[in-house]
Each structure stands twice: as C-alpha cells, then as structure tokens.
Write a protein that binds this DNA or RNA. Structure first.
Ligand SMILES: [Zn+2]
Ligand SMILES: [Zn+2]
Ligand SMILES: [Zn+2]
Ligand SMILES: [Zn+2]
Lengths: 150, 150
DNA sequence: AGTCGGGCGTTACGCTGTAACGTACGCTTT
DNA sequence: AAAGCGTACGTTACAGCGTAACGCCCGACT
C-alpha cells in the first residue's frame, strides 16, 4: 500500500511538471494525506493530520491553499455538496474530467468517481443545448446508496 | 406581480394541506420571501429580510427551521453546492422531483430548475444500475453559463 | 385535569472558508 | 552586484454557514 502511495505521488509529480506547476513539499504532503484516506475528508480533518504529522503550526490558510492548488491541478477534487476533498480516483488513467459524475453514498460515505458513457453524455449534451446552457468544468454529484449499502 | 405571489402562496397552502403539514404564519412569511427573490439566497440573507420585514428578533434557528420545513415539503429547494435556497420553480405544475437538474449560471447566478427528459433519465438510470448505485432524492446540480450569459 | 407533541425563542457553539498583511526566496533585468 | 518581481508561505483576524440543547407555549387527545 505504501508502494501505491509512492507511485501515486510520482504520477502527481509528473502531472505538475507537464502543466508547468510546482508540487512543493507542503503540497506533496497534503496530496499524500489525501491518497491515504479511504473516503473524502474535510479541510479541517486534513489540517489536523497535517499538524500532527508534518507541520504542527499549520493554520487554515495553509491547508486551503494546498487543497486549492491540488484541485486546480486536477490531482484532487472537492465535493461541493458536502465540503469534502479527495484524491482523484483516476490519477493513473489519463482521461480528463469534462463529464465526471461523483456517486456519493449517504450511508457509508464512499465516493465513486464515475465517468459518463457516451449515450449518457449525448443525452445530457442534447438537454443542455436545448436549454441553451453551457456546462462548466465542475463535476456533478449524485447522492444515494452504493452497492454495498443497499 | 404581487398577484403571482398571492397565488403561489395559495398553492403552497394547498400543498401543505394535501400532505398533512402546517404552513404556519412564520413559514408562510419565509415562503413569501423566497418567492419574491430573483435568484437563490443564502439563509442569512433571508434572515436579514425576515428581521427587517416581519420578525426583528429572529435568530438563525428561526430561518433554518422554516427553510428545512419548506424544503422537506417540496415547496423550496436547497442548492447544496452553493448553500443557497430558492422557491420551487414548478409550484404550479404538479410534477415530482425524482430527476430534477438544477442549472446554475456561475456568472449571473440564475438557476433553472430543469426536468430531465425520458432519454436522459433512461441513460442515467442505466449508468447508475451498472454501478449498482441507487439514487436518492437530492437533485443534481450543474454549473456553467446560462443562455443570456454566453 | 393531565399528557403529549409540534412549533418556536434563546443561548451558545462548531465547522467552513477567506481577506489582508508581511516575509522569504528564486529569478530576471540592469 | 543591485534592484526589481512573482510565487509560496506564515500569521492574524474575521466572515459566513449551520446546529445542539434547553425551555416555553399551545392545541389535541384521553
Ligand atoms: Zn478525478
Ligand atoms: Zn455505501
Ligand atoms: Zn421544484
Ligand atoms: Zn447567467
């Protein structure tokens, strides 16, 4: 598992280089914390972790800056409906996030980062263009029960 | 316009009666405030309105209780991604909200309460059942640019 | 009369996020 | 080398969002 962590961090390094961004030690620490988590975490949870593990004096802006960076770099995501953060579930496979759908289980908290298939994308695009609405980059979120919790 | 407000409030009364719920004067005042707004509002904005117009001594729990009631009664909605509330855009037409999609313009803030058409619902249902995910009642939200803002 | 539950007032608090300032450091330009 | 510049980061203070918990009132039911 620690092996996977290292590998994921290496990929994160690479992604930043490709985009001309700097994965500083602090940002890398936070990315590491996100990768260790089983589910999405609040910024303040992560701040506690960061304080106890790496930076005792860290304050809210510290964690928010790191998280904002990771999200904008595409390495992590923010769940707007629950104010939680999580590492991207598709770090290795290089597809984009134009039409990502987060399936959030309200019972166990698990999040599945699903990719819309072509028919779904087409149906959605048709509906949106009918409404004259241009979708942004912010992924959609759907709440419900996951397979394990039904 | 005040005529529309009265009419909408009458419908709200009726909806509550049908469901065995009580639209108390306080709740009705908040529903009125929501109906007057042009776009979604924060709970604290509405609290300010309520204080200046009806209840000078109102405190946060007052507005949150009213909003929670209105949302659970299906008369209003909460946008989870922006922490905003708005009156249901389909008070008059009696369709349910099983597959509602909120289109939120990030530029002007307008929200369109769209109803998914059959092909979209089908494509979505198929994707969800493939994932073994059972959707809850919380509507989806998509961010982007509305027709006017493109 | 007594009981019970819903609606509401009130206090206090916790969680989420940011503005605004200053400092340090690396890079470029002169 | 000196000056200027931009990015990252430390720090303080604050704004915005939401709720737990308690108690009171009042109407309905027995
Ligand atoms: Zn992702
Ligand atoms: Zn689950
Ligand atoms: Zn509605
Ligand atoms: Zn717009």
């Amino acid at each position: 598992m620690a092996k996977d962590l290292e590998k994921s961090l290496k990929i994160a390094d690479q992604r930043c280089i490709e985009q001309g961004l700097r994965l500083t030690p602090q940002r890398r620490q936070v990315m590491g914390l996100l990768l260790e988590q089983e589910g999405p975490r609040s910024a303040y949870d992560l701040l506690d972790e960061l304080q106890s593990r790496h930076q005792p004096g860290a304050k809210p802006p510290t964690i928010y800056r790191a998280l904002d960076f990771l999200v904008s770099a595409g390495l992590a995501h923010r769940l707007a409906s629950t104010n939680r953060y999580l590492a991207c579930g598709h770090l290795a496979c290089d597809h984009g996030h134009e039409r990502t759908l987060f399936l959030v289980c309200d019972q166990c908290g698990a999040v599945r980062e699903a990719t819309m298939d072509t028919p779904l994308k087409q149906a959605l695009n048709r509906s949106l263009s009918q409404e004259g609405f241009t979708a942004g980059t912010q992924p959609m979120e759907m709440h419900g029960r996951c397979r394990a919790c039904r």
